[in-house]
Simulated scan of single mutants.
Amino acid sequence: MTFYEDFSKVYDQVMDQSLYDDWLAFTKRHIAKSSKSIFELACGSGALSVLLAQNGYDVTALDISEDMLKLATKKAKSAGVEITWMQGDMRYLPPFAKFDVVTCYSDSLCYLSDLSEWGLAFEGVYSLLEEEGVFIFDVHSTYQIDEVFPDYSYHENEEDFAFLWDSYKGKVPHSIEHQLSFFIKEKDDQFVRKDELHVERTYESAEIVKMLNSVGFSCITLFSDFTDNSPSKDSARWFFICKK
């Protein structure tokens, strides 16, 4: 699993910021109006956590990367909101308070190495939810991984950094390898190159539902691409709504 060590330095500059509004809107449509507490897994730089807090939710957010949490803390302070930040691994969630809602967005589960690790995360989430609580997450579809990502290339050149993103078919079914290269301007005006390999893997939706059922989720609905529509054969992103 990547820790986004160098990616964190340019993450907000290369990430499509409008997606956070989409995740916020999707979340609000699919949780009870009485929901108060939200646990955000893999919160990254905290953009969605801040939006949730600004919308009146009591937010706790977890990420594996200390660098990302530093960015998130600064973002929350600038926005004037209170959020409980936790560093940790979604596969090994600690006993904690119960929550009305748990989210895990931005295909974060796809960074886990196999479906058994997804199961560990699902078990932890189930234990964190209140009775009738809701778990919402998204993942890449098999179409996105198998047909869209291979040979994808994205390059960005700014005054203080350059960012190269090239994707290649992975070594196991429904997997992709993203080769990231950063050229980051240091205080002495010299550029330093850093490289990271990000490996993602997804599964057939039926396999994911089966794993969710095995840990106790019994009411599962599947949508696609930030809409309330069922997935089609060329949907890029699957959204799962799971009720405890």
Score class of each variant (00 low, 15 high):
165 W>N: 02
237 R>S: 04
1 M>N: 05
112 L>E: 09
182 F>K: 07
174 H>T: 07
7 F>C: 11
236 A>T: 05
228 D>P: 04
113 S>A: 14
1 M>I: 06
194 K>A: 11
84 T>P: 01
12 D>R: 01
26 F>E: 03
50 V>D: 02
75 K>Q: 05
185 K>P: 03
215 V>G: 09
131 E>F: 10
228 D>M: 04
213 N>K: 15
143 Y>S: 01
8 S>K: 09
81 V>F: 01
180 L>P: 03
167 S>P: 08
56 G>D: 04
198 H>F: 02
113 S>L: 11
99 F>P: 05
91 R>Q: 15
154 Y>I: 05
86 M>P: 02
49 S>V: 00
38 I>P: 04
209 V>R: 10
240 F>W: 14
163 F>I: 01
207 E>M: 11
80 G>L: 07
35 S>A: 15
47 A>N: 09
240 F>L: 12
174 H>D: 08
48 L>H: 06
17 Q>M: 12
87 Q>G: 08
118 W>N: 09
204 E>K: 13
67 D>Y: 13
20 Y>G: 09
92 Y>R: 12
105 Y>R: 01
176 I>N: 15
190 Q>G: 13
187 K>Q: 14
182 F>C: 05
154 Y>P: 00
39 F>P: 03
109 L>V: 09
153 S>N: 07
214 S>W: 01
208 I>G: 07
197 L>T: 15
107 D>S: 09
5 E>Y: 09
183 F>K: 08
10 V>H: 08
18 S>Y: 08
36 K>R: 12
167 S>T: 14
39 F>K: 03
187 K>P: 07
141 S>I: 07
19 L>K: 15
76 A>I: 04
67 D>V: 08
146 D>V: 07
160 D>E: 11
20 Y>N: 06
57 Y>D: 04
240 F>K: 11
23 W>N: 05
64 I>F: 11
139 V>P: 08
86 M>H: 12
47 A>P: 01
223 F>R: 00
81 V>H: 01
175 S>A: 12
216 G>H: 14
60 T>N: 03
232 S>V: 12
195 D>T: 09
207 E>H: 06
172 V>H: 04
30 H>Y: 06
133 G>R: 03
137 F>D: 03
63 D>S: 11
104 C>I: 10
48 L>T: 10
184 I>R: 02
55 N>W: 00
32 A>N: 13
129 L>N: 12
221 T>G: 00
153 S>P: 00
107 D>P: 05
113 S>M: 08
115 L>Y: 06
59 V>S: 09
190 Q>D: 10
170 G>L: 08
85 W>C: 10
61 A>H: 09
166 D>L: 05
3 F>H: 07
121 A>R: 03
162 A>Q: 13
29 R>D: 10
140 H>E: 12
40 E>V: 07
39 F>G: 00
206 A>E: 15
93 L>D: 01
166 D>Y: 05
175 S>C: 10
67 D>W: 02
167 S>G: 12
99 F>S: 04
185 K>S: 11
95 P>V: 10
239 F>T: 01
125 V>S: 10
194 K>G: 02
110 C>L: 07
152 Y>Q: 08
123 E>A: 13
196 E>G: 04
96 F>W: 11
44 G>D: 01
61 A>K: 11
